[in-house]
Nucleic acid binder design. Sequence first.
DNA 1: TATATTTAAAATGTCGGACAAATCAAGATT
DNA 2: AATCTTGATTTGTCCGACATTTTAAATATA
Lengths: 259, 259
Amino acid sequence: MLATKPNKVAAASPRLKRKELRLHSSIARDLGMHIVSGHYRPGHVLAGEIEASGQLKVSRSAYREAVRMLAAKGLVQSRTRTGTRVSAVEQWHLLDPDVLAWVFAGEPELEVLQGLFELRTIIEPEAAALAAARRNDKNIGVMRGALERMALHTVNVEAGRIADKEFHSELLRATRNPFIISLTNGVAAAVHALTEFKQRAQALKRDPLPEHWRVFHAIAAGDTVEARAAMTELIRLAITDMPVKRWPENWTDSRLMQD
Amino acid sequence: MLATKPNKVAAASPRLKRKELRLHSSIARDLGMHIVSGHYRPGHVLAGEIEASGQLKVSRSAYREAVRMLAAKGLVQSRTRTGTRVSAVEQWHLLDPDVLAWVFAGEPELEVLQGLFELRTIIEPEAAALAAARRNDKNIGVMRGALERMALHTVNVEAGRIADKEFHSELLRATRNPFIISLTNGVAAAVHALTEFKQRAQALKRDPLPEHWRVFHAIAAGDTVEARAAMTELIRLAITDMPVKRWPENWTDSRLMQD
DNA sequence: TATATTTAAAATGTCGGACAAATCAAGATT
DNA sequence: AATCTTGATTTGTCCGACATTTTAAATATA
C-alpha cells in the first residue's frame, strides 16, 4: 500500500477501452442487465443487502446506492422488511437511456424490436417535419458532417455507427422540443446497440446512405412534407434490414397508412 | 429526542395525506424540484456532501443516495474532486415520471407546455389507433369505468382528475407497445399535474367528457381511423382549454396537417 | 375455539466516522 | 520552460451500530 507509488510509465495509456465506471454504477449496470434480460423476473425479491453485498464483495453502502439507481429507473422497489423486489415491466422506465441500452445489449425479443420500430415510426417522421421547420445552420452543419463521416466509415464499423447516432440525435435536437430531444439519448442508444446487433448477425449489404441524404436535404431545404416522407421511408428500410425471419402477422399494414 | 417514546394513541392516524417518503427520496425530490425549476442551473456545482448533508441535517449516506437517484435521472453528474454539478438540460430524462411531475409541479414555462402538447399530438392519436386495433375487453372495461367516474366527479376535483389519468393510461396500455406504455406513467403524471394547474387558474368551463366518449367508442368499435381523429380533436380542445394568453406565433399550423 | 393483543424477528433505513482514490493546483526540481 | 512532486479537496468505499417499519408468531383474552 505504501512505497509502491506507481511510476508514470504508462502515461499515454490507452484508456479508450472503457468508461471505468464507479463501483456503484457497475453494480447497478450488472443488476439492471440481469433484470431486463429476465434473469430476475418481476416480483422476484433480491437477496438482502447484507447477503447480496457480501456475495459481490462490496460494501453495503455501494450496493445500496446501486439499488437506489435502479429504483430511480423504476426497475425495483424497496420496502422495509419486505425487501427489494423487481417491479412489474409497466413500471420500468424503458425510455431511460441506460435501461434501453441494457435491453438492447442482449438479444432483444421480437416484440421489443417491433415496439421500438413502432415508436420510431410514430415519432421520427413528425420529428423530421419539425426539424425541417425549425432547424438552424448549426443543426444542418452537424448533420452534414455526421453523414459525411458515416459515408467515410460505413455503418459496419463503430465510427460509422457513432456518426449515424449523431445524425439522428442532431435531427431530434433540431425539433427544439425538449421532450423529443430527451427521447434522443434513449432511442439513439437503442439504435446504436441495434446496429451493432444487426452487424453481429450479418454485414449490412444495402448502403443506407441515400435515404439519409434524402432526409437531410429535405430538412436543409425546410420542406416539412418531404422530410416526413423521407424519414418514413428511412425507417421502413431499416425495418427490412433487420435480420428477422418474419415480422408478426400483417404488422406494418395494421398501423401505417390506415387512412 | 429520548425518553419520549410515542405511545400508540393515534393508531388510526389519517396517513392518507402523503406517501411518507423515505428520507433519501424526499431529499431527491426537493433537490430535483430545485433543479428543474431553475433554482440550480445547469453547470452549477452543488455544495459538497459534508456541507450539504450538514445543512439538511441528514447523514452523508442519505444525501448520497439522493444524489445517486438524481444522477440516475440525468439531472446531475458526480466526479471526484470536481463535485456534483447540474447537467445540461439535454441530459435530463424529461420523460421520467418523477422529473416530469417535478417540472409540472411548479408553473411550467410556455415552451415546456407547448413541448408536451406537441409530443402528445404526435403520440396519442397514433396510440389511439393502435389501441383500437389491439384493445381487449379488459381495456374497454377499465376505460369505460374511468370515464364514468370522470363524469361523476368532474375534473374539477381530484377524484375526477385521477379517473382522467386512468383513462389515458389504460388507452396507452391497450397499444400493447411496452415503450408507449412506458410513456404512460410520465405523460399521465404530467397531464395530472397540468389539470391541477389548469384548475388553479380557473375552473374548467367546458365539459371534456364528449370528446373522451368519442375516443372511447371508436376504440371499443375497433375503428382506427375514427380513434385517431377523435384523439386529435381531444388534444386540440385540451390545448384551447389551457389558460395561456397566446400560443407562440402560428404554432399549431406549423406542424399539424401540413400535408 | 376464535379473536385480539403483544411480542419478536427480519429487512431496509439512517447515522457517524474512517480511510481510499482521483484530480486539480501550486510549488519544487531539473 | 517544462516536468515532476507534493498537497489539498472532493467524491468513493468501507465498516459498525442503531432506528424504523412491517410481517409473523406467540400469547392473552373473550
